[in-house]
Every structure is written in C-alpha cells, then in structure tokens.
C-alpha cells in the first residue's frame, strides 16, 4: 500500500544546518587547481562537482514506470540496456542501471516534489523509489583529454566513437565502481559513492596531472 510509505524531504535548504558536498573536504585538503593554472597553458581536462542534485533510484516494471515518468516529468525510460535519456534543457536524466532499475537525476530542489508526484501517480503499483541523493555525487569531466584520463582509470572501452553520446554504464573505475555516462559530446559524467568521492577526486587529480587538469568552481544548484 502506498500510504504506508513514509516520504521525507531530505533537503536542508530551510534548516539551520549548512549542507556540505561530498567533496567539500577534499577541495580543502587536496586543493582545487584552477583550470589553466598549473603551467599557464590551457587545461586539457577539467573536472567539477555538481553537488546537491536529486538522485532517485526507480525499481519495478519498465512499462508502469515509463508511463508514470512520461506523465510526471515528460521524459520516458530508456528502453535499451546501458542507455541514458536527457530532457530538453539537460537538467533531468534517466539512466538504465539494470533490467528493473533506473537512476533519475533532477535538480535538487525538485526531488521531493517529484518523488511525491511519482508515488501519487503510481498508486499501489509494485515499484520502489529510493532517494539516494545523499549517498552519491556527480563529477563532470570535460576537455579534449577527458577520455584519455578515463582510459587510464577504467577497463571499459571509452573511445568516443564506441562510447557514444547517450550511453551510460556501471563499471570499474580505479578499483572502485562508478556510473560513467555521456550526456552530450562535450562532457562525461561520473557518479561516485559519497564514501569513495574523495578517493576518486584524488585519483582524477593524479591521473590528469599530465593534462594540466583543473577543477571548475561550481556555480549552479548550490543551496544557500
């Protein structure tokens, strides 16, 4: 029964607690080399955290979830394995994770409303929606050497011709697991577990050193 599910707004926007991104400590301790800083040359790889997004895991039958998502959000579930659907303005995305599991990422302040509306629309359907926003974070990787940084880190074939736009996989990355995806031609996204975020960040700084890797300061989606 859907009315036995307790749904909480996990955002701290209106609370007195300051929200810190999973990488806040890493930025302080390991530093944030600015793009183009190191050698005075252009950085060939740039990373940046997009913190405080809303991450929802949807589990259940593809047909019922697809219908609800189209109704509520206007985008459908990706039908093929290892694929990714992004909405028109690039702010919301759904990714195939397994035959009955999808990852929905939306701007942080929409998470609770969306979850509530999805639940209302799904009624008593046999599905699960879990808010995992606090458990993982999204790191963006761009620049001409971006895929070279990835090639040093993962066994998956990240050749831009093979790993086309709209593809997303869960794979091994620097001995941990990561969700790697390509929402558009200019950038890659890595979704890492919060507890591994510092490790992945430091790995990327190290792997990207030869490309003069820089860290872009985030300007979007940060709660006050």
């Amino acid at each position: 029964m859907s009315n036995s599910v307790h749904v909480y707004d996990a955002r701290t926007d209106h609370a007195t607690v300051t929200a810190e991104s999973p990488l806040a400590y890493s930025f302080q301790r390991s530093g944030m080399p600015a793009p183009g800083d190191a050698s005075g040359e252009e950085s060939r790889a740039v990373i940046g955290e997009r913190a405080f997004l809303g991450h929802l895991i949807l589990r259940g039958g593809a047909i019922v979830l697809d219908e609800a998502l189209r109704e509520v959000l206007g985008i459908g579930l990706p039908g093929r394995p290892n694929s990714l659907t992004v909405d028109a303005d690039g702010q919301r995305s759904v990714q195939w994770l397994s035959p009955d599991e999808w990852l929905l990422i939306v701007p942080g302040d929409e998470t609770f409303g969306l979850e509530t509306r999805l639940r209302a629309h799904l009624g008593g359907a046999h599905v699960a929606i879990v808010d995992v926003s606090a458990g993982q974070t999204l790191i963006e990787l761009s620049g001409e050497a971006a895929h070279e940084v990835l090639m040093k880190s993962t066994v998956y074939d990240v050749d831009p011709h093979t790993f086309t736009v709209g593809k997303g996989v869960t794979t091994l990355f620097a001995k941990t697991s990561v969700i790697l995806r390509r929402p558009d031609a200019s950038r890659w996204e890595l979704i890492v577990r919060r507890s591994f975020a510092d490790y992945v960040y430091r790995w990327l700084l190290d792997a990207g050193e030869e490309y003069g890797i820089g860290v872009a300061r985030e300007s979007r989606h940060e709660p006050q």
Partner: peptide, 9 residues
C-alpha cells in the same frame, strides 16, 4: 542483461 561483452573483473 547488459547485452554486451564486459571485462571479467
């Protein structure tokens, strides 16, 4: 399920 070849690891 993924319908592709993946690394043994």
């Amino acid at each position: 399920y993924c319908e592709e070849l993946r690394e043994e690891e």
